[in-house]
């Protein structure tokens, strides 16, 4: 099994309520780029949570990096979580830490030496255009800047799998295009990317498979093989030859 993620007849219900996810089956190949869409309340966030191991399904089989998570001991999920990057919808930055410390978190939790942490974090913050805001706390940053800190935190440990929940929901089209470019670049380096979004302009004609959730059921449209057309053109940022943050 060389799938990064494989779902087989997965169902999820909270408590004794109805199933919010029903018979979900799909797989994600290494290096693929998927969009996840659906109306509000369709279960996108729940599906993402199962994929980034923050939630266990009520039924069905879920394989992450080839491991059946229903039988995997809890202590062994740690190494899987460290190979996954997540950009949360509301960023979920730690407001008492600086941008630098927020981005450094995934490295520090793995016990990497502080000198290496500093080097990598500074490089990445420069790359995402936050060179002058390294010591700033999230509440003092704009929405776009917070978004970039959140993305930098998600990618600093070079994840094999990246999830982004509405990563462009709070930013204008120009910043959205830049963020998408960043995801494209990551995808080119082999990271499997899944982006949950409402933005039809982003998904239409992207050339990427679109996983559509509706009423707890999943339908996949678009080519199954990755064929990523630069999404930023669809977002109206095609005047820039290179993307700079």
């Amino acid at each position: 099994m060389n799938d990064i993620i494989r779902f087989e007849n997965v169902g999820l219900r909270y408590g004794i309520g109805p199933e919010v996810l029903q018979d979900i089956s799909f797989d994600l190949k290494p290096g693929s780029f998927h969009f996840l869409t659906g109306p509000s309340g369709a279960g996108k966030s729940s599906l993402l949570k199962i994929m980034y191991l923050a939630l266990r399904p009520s039924r069905g089989l879920v394989y992450i990096f080839g491991h059946d998570i229903s039988t995997l001991p809890r202590k062994n999920t740690l190494s899987l979580r460290r190979r996954i990057g997540v950009v949360f919808q509301e960023f979920r930055l730690l407001s008492h830490l600086s941008a630098f410390d927020n981005v450094a978190l995934p490295l520090r939790v793995t016990g990497i030496r502080e000198a290496n942490v500093r080097k990598h974090v500074e490089e990445l913050l420069v790359w995402v255009g936050l060179k002058d805001h390294m010591d700033a706390r999230p509440p003092t940053l704009s929405g776009g800047q917070q978004q970039r800190v959140a993305i930098a935190r998600a990618v600093i440990a070079r994840p094999k799998l990246l999830f982004a929940d509405e990563p462009t929901g709070n930013v204008d089209d120009q910043i959205a295009a830049r963020i998408m470019h960043l995801f494209e670049e990551l995808n080119k380096t082999g990271t499997t990317v899944v982006i949950a979004t409402h933005n039809k302009a982003m998904t239409n004609g992207s050339g990427c498979p679109v996983m559509k959730l509706e009423g707890g059921l999943l339908k996949i449209t678009g080519p199954m093989k990755k064929k990523l057309v630069s999404v930023r053109h669809k977002l109206g940022d095609d005047k820039k030859a290179t993307i700079e943050f």
């Binding site: 740690l78 979580r81 460290r82 996954i84 997540v86 949360f88 979920r92 978190l105 939790v109 793995t110």
Partner: peptide
């Protein structure tokens, strides 16, 4: 709880 969840998701060991 919010901070703990974030730390958990990004791969922090329980001992950490």
């Amino acid at each position: 709880r919010e901070t703990i969840n974030v730390l958990h998701v990004i791969g922090a060991h329980d001992h950490y």
